[in-house]
Structures are given as structure tokens and as C-alpha cells.
Design a protein around this nucleic acid. Structure first.
Lengths: 214, 214, 214, 214
DNA sequence: CATGAATGAGTTTTCATTCAT
DNA sequence: CATGAATGAAAACTCATTCAT
């Protein structure tokens, strides 16, 4: 009985994208096999070409979907914290944990960086639209902290975002080579707690001192 | 200068590895073509198999060489700074600049992480031997700072190394997707200065406060 | 008649197997060329890999088919002879002539013996199922002869089968070296008659004396 | 220290031929690898080409040597039996056991038959000279038996030789496919005894009845 | 829409043999 | 004589994509 006949176009596309996501994340663009994707799918290879034109088209749709899901998830961070400090602290922690939870997405991002983001670039507005709000969250947090006197002015929100992203992303994407080279202690439970706390401390420090003195 | 029949095994191997490094860094393992590597080489495809057995063998030797070159370079950081603070500051700056200068190596590392470091693992001692000294540099710096009263005790040197690596590495490996999503301001000259300074400030802060309070 | 785009899987497979049979029988496994098989086929090299995975897979299917055809042919020996003696006599003659007629199969068997039957072993039940009835024919003949008093009891049917097979097989498979060493008189018409008659006489003798006296 | 430098040309050639014998017997002509032969040798690949011109030349020398050794061994059968019957009986038994002991040679013969003995043919007199005496042994035995009244006249010595060879050879060369198809009972100790005894009985029967009645 | 069959161009790999020293 | 280095030709095998039904 194998593959239950696909229900409707949207469902079929979703199913293909899901499998393709996994395969591309696992093997990269060149390493992924259209055959394998098709076989794991509830539909046939022909449908991949029908809906996505070719392997590259499929890969690009995978990127669009992955980024969209990620941003939607990030937008749901909303808690109602007591203070800007606490809010920033929570934001860093949540970003850190979130990256860990979305290893597949992190891998796709790493893969796309190997391709120098040429596919994200090719997507144009379809991609950039999706990122509009990502920096805004931290910008807002930071403004509130400055207003309340908890933070000093002068920090660039994008730079703060970069800083947090760097730590949270590297933790996931470079885990294997780092462990191979320096041991996996930093990936023990205690190790991860330490790293996350370092990230929080560092970010709070940056926000509190501001960048005016530069 | 055509293809000067080499008759010099070491030179031939070196030449192959150099080209292969570029091709693997550019296209990943699956995306790289033995044919292309061979054509760009001063020797023939046959010699690649003669010296490296197969594509995977070649890729692994590329990894070994890349890591060795990187570590040798790192070991040459030696300056004679006035203080531990200054030394740590220099170390962070140099790591940051160094990663930028070695984009190819950074790409190989990213690629190997996509492969979950299975090839570094397969290399066993041939790889791990090469990393022995990498953390030691910062460990020494930190110890001297603690001794001189500039830093507080309690930080783990590997964690500090992780922290610096994360920022310096992300800056290079995720440049393209970050720019595509949030603009390339952080990759302007001024932007890069800011990021580097943030890294320095954050690391000094961590070293100065120590981790005792955990 | 060029290459009629087959669109008939069974026909395409059959065509490939037929050609492959000839090439493997002629050149052995290592000596056969997938390219040559493909060229002689009505389809393309790609289809060989599509249906049989690789050269070894093709070779194994050739073995399965060859044995099956051989056994089916053997099962059709059915005559209605007057006596067990006559039946056994006919059986030996038919086996002897049959091996001569199926030189290609004999060559495949010889080749597979060079491989120590590792491919037949790998086929497992797919191969052993096919041989179920092969000994039964002679076992039945022999039992009837014992019952009628023409033969004495005590012979093992598998050993009788071995004995007949040995003579009929050697006659075909070792023809060339035997002729090269001792001349081709035994492969003249008269010579072959003599050998066949020797085989008949010997087998009848064994059946008539039984093996009780051992 | 690896390979102890070869002593003298004859020794070097002998060493190459010995290894080559094994490799050709194991893998056939096409399946054998010059590289592997060279590596297993105490000398280098260059010497193979120096002494034997090419792979085919080496294979042919292997054949010459193998046949010569075999014939020399057969010529040493000489016992001084009481009667022709006993002598023939011994001859059959010895041939049967001998084939078992020289599996490698049997494999080479099988391989050369796959090649339709074209290499033995190409060797011309170098090969045929070597077989002169092989039939003579049994011819002499048979004549003595006829003279003493133990055997009847009319048998052709070459045919008797063929008959004995067939059984003794098949027993070794087709062992694997026969076992795979019909079980290995005939290759148990008892099974082999039975087969050998069948061969003896059959040959004696043929010699005693002669072929006059044809 | 759906599917198994088909394919051309390309990819990795192998092999016997020769060359330079 | 001896050896590691070198090689061209050809071998096995793969892949994204398209076709026929």
C-alpha cells in the first residue's frame, strides 16, 4: 500500500518541501539526490519537476519556507518581562536555545553561505521581506532599556543582533569540528549553560556600556 | 608554462592539494569535480588517484593540510605585549582579522561541519595532534592576567576560546546570509571595526569578571 | 532494425540478459565489458544499471536465468520407456547430449566455480529453489529399477547424479585443454559416441551392482 | 626492511611465477592484477615486464610451468603392484587424490578452458611436449592387463584417460556449484570415498568388458 | 495529474604499461 | 638491473531530467 495517494496540490507541495528540506540540510545542494527526495515523498519524481521546475527551484523554495518558519517562530518570543534587562537576557537565552532546536535550519543557512547566498539573492524580495522584523525585536528592547536608563545609548541594533546570532549560531553549526578539535566538554549540559551565560553577560555588558566611547 | 613534467612527488602532491583546497572550499565535497581539479593542476587526473586513492582521500588530506597551516599560523601570534589586557586585546583582534584572511579555510571548516566532522574523526590522531596547542595560547594569556590581577579567576580557557572563535568565525562564514537578510553595513570598514571592538570589549569583560559568581 | 524504443520492461530485461549471458559466458565476469553488452543490446547502458544496479547484479541475474532455463529443460526429459534400464540409459545419453548443446551454460558454471560459487551462494533461496527437482529424476528412475529387480539397492541418487554430471560436464568444459594435450580424436563423431557409451555402460554397471558391498 | 632483494635472475623469475600462479588461479586472467602480483613479489613491477613482456606473456609462462610440474608429478606414480587390476585401481585412486591436492592447477586449467585453450595452443610445442607421457602410463597398464587376461582388449587408452580425468577433475573444479545446488554431502569424507570407489569400479568394469562389442 | 521507463552527458575510478633516474 | 613516478585509454557507474502512456 506504500504511498497514500496525495490529497491536494498544497499538501503535495508541502510534503515535497518537507522531505527536500531534510535532504538538502543533510547533504547540501550538490550532495542531495532528487531520486532520494522523490522516493521519500508521498508522490513521484514527476511532481517535483511539475511544481518546482528543477532541483535548484526546489532548493530555493526550501530556503524560502525555512526562513519564513524561522522568522515566524522568532516573532512569537513575546513575553511581558519586568525590565529591559530581563527582556534582553531572555532574548539572548531564547535565541541560544532556539538555534539548538532548529539544527536543520542552521545547516541550510550554512549550506547557503557556502553558495555565497546566491540563491537568497536570486529570491530577491521574496526573501528580504521575510526578515523585516527580525532586527526590530532587539531594537525595540534596546530602546526601552535606554529609555529606562538600564542601557546606555550608542549601540547599533543590527550589530547587537549580529553579536547574539554569532554566538548562538556558531554553537550549533560548528559543534562538530569544535568538539573534534577541543573535546566535547562545552557541549555537556553544564558547558552549554556556561556558554549561554557568557553570551548573556557579554550582551548585557555591551548594552550597558553603550558604544558612545568609540 | 604548460605542465612541466614534475618528477617531484612532494611538489606534485602540494600542487594537487592546493588546487583541491580551492575547489573543495568553493564547491563542497559533493560539488567539487575531480576532473576540474585535475585540469587546473600541473599534473593529470591519474596522479590524484595515485597519491590520494580517491576523492575522499584527497579531501581528507586537504583538511589535514588546512588545519595544520592554520595552527602553525596561529602559533606565530607571538608579540611581547605590555600587559595581559593588551595581550588578550591583541589576541582577539588578530583572531578576528585572521579568520577574515583565511576565508578558504573557514569554508572548509563549514563544509566539514555539514559532514558532521566525520572526516576529521576518521583522521583520528592525524587531526587531533594538530590542535594540541590551540587553546594553550589563550590559557596562558588568561593565567598571566589572573596572576597580575588584571583578570579574575574562574574562566575556562576552552570556553573563552569558543567565545572568540564564535564571533570571528561567524563573521566570515555567515557573512553572505547575514548581509542578504540585514544589509551589508556590518561588513563596511566601519562596521567591521565596530564588531571587532565589541568582541574585544566582551572578552575583556568576561576575563575581568571571571566566572566565579556562577 | 535499429533500436526500437522498447517501452516494454520485460522485453528489455530479457534482451539485456540474453546478451549479457553470452558476454559473461565468453569472457568471464572480470573480462566482460558492460559497454560491449550495452552496445549489443537494443537499449542503452543506462538501462542495465536501471534494472540490474551494477555489473555484479547483472551477472547474478544471468546465473539465475541460466540455471532456471537449464532445469526447466531437464524437467522435460519425460519419455515413457519400456524398462528402468532403458530409462537410465536414455537419461545418461540425454544428459551427455544436453551438456554439449548448452555450452554457454556450462561455461557460466565453470566461471562461477572459479568464483567459488559465491554468487550462487549470495542468491540464496533464489538459486537453491531452482535445483529442487534435479536429483529427483534419477532418484525415481533408480527406485523403479530396484523395484523391478533390474538394479540393486544401495546407490545414492546424488552420487549417481554427480557421476553422470561429471562425465557430461567435463566433456564440454575441458574439451579445449584435453584436445590441446591429447589430440581431438575423442571429439570426433566416433570419439563422442564412444565416450557416451562408456558413460552409459559405467552408470548401468554401478546401478546393477549397487553399493551394498561397501 | 620489507622485500629481501632478490638473489639471481632464475630465482626472481621463479618467485614471480609462483605468485602469478596463485593470482591467476584465484582470479582468472582478466581478474588478476599486475599491480597485486608485483606487490606480493619480492621484486618490482618492472621486472615482470622485463622477464615476461606483458601480462599475457606472464600468464602463458604460468601455464607452461603448471603443466610441467603436474606431469612431472604424475610420472612419479610408479609403484610395483602385484597385478594390472591393482595397478589400475591405484592409478584411479591416485589421480583422484592428486587432483584434490592440486586445486590451483585445476583452476588454471578451468580458466584456460574458458579461453578455449588459445594460450596453450599459442605455446605450441612448448606445451604439447610436456604431455607426451601422460596417456602412456595408463596405456601401458591396460596392455599389461590385457596380456595377463585381467582386461579385455578394445579400449582406447586416451578414452580411459579421459574417463578417469573427467571424474577426478569435475570433483575438484565443480565442487562449489555442485555443493551449492545439491548439498555438500558428496564432499564429506565418506562422500569422497564413495565417489572415488565409484570411479574405481567403473574404470575396472570398462577395462574388464573391453569395447569390442561396439 | 500521475508514473515507471528511458536517456545523454558526465563522474569517478581502474588498469596495463612506460618513463626517468 | 631496479624503482617509484607517470600516463592514456577505457572501465564502471551516476545524475538530473524528459518521455510515453
Amino acid at each position: 500500500m506504500a504511498k497514500p495517494k496525495a490529497r491536494n496540490p498544497e499538501e503535495v507541495k508541502r510534503n515535497i518541501l518537507e522531505i527536500a528540506s531534510e535532504e538538502f540540510a543533510e547533504n547540501g545542494f550538490a550532495g542531495a539526490r532528487v531520486n532520494v527526495i522523490a522516493e521519500r515523498t508521498e508522490t513521484s519524481k514527476r511532481m517535483i519537476y511539475y511544481y518546482f521546475d528543477d532541483k535548484l527551484g526546489l532548493y530555493r523554495e526550501v530556503l524560502v519556507l525555512a526562513y519564513r518558519q524561522m522568522r515566524e517562530q522568532e516573532a512569537a518570543y513575546n513575553d511581558a518581562p519586568k525590565s529591559a534587562t530581563e527582556a534582553l537576557c531572555n532574548f539572548v537565552r531564547q535565541t541560544f536555545m532556539d538555534r539548538i532546536r532548529h539544527e536543520g535550519f542552521m545547516r541550510l543557512v550554512a549550506i547557503e553561505n557556502i553558495h555565497r547566498a546566491e540563491n537568497l539573492d536570486a529570491l530577491g524580495a521574496r526573501f528580504s521581506d521575510v526578515n523585516k522584523s527580525a532586527v526590530e525585536t532587539i531594537a525595540k528592547l534596546y530602546r526601552e532599556g535606554v529609555a529606562s536608563g538600564e542601557f546606555r545609548a550608542g549601540c547599533d541594533a543590527t550589530e547587537l543582533h549580529w553579536f547574539i546570532s554569532a554566538l548562538a549560531t556558531f554553537n550549533v553549526t560548528n559543534r562538530h569540528t569544535f568538539s573534534a578539535a577541543f573535546g566535547s566538554a562545552v557541549y555537556s549540559e553544564k558547558g552549554q549553560e556556561n556558554l549561554c551565560q557568557m553570551a548573556v553577560d557579554a550582551v548585557l555588558h555591551l548594552a550597558r556600556t553603550g558604544r558612545d566611547h568609540q
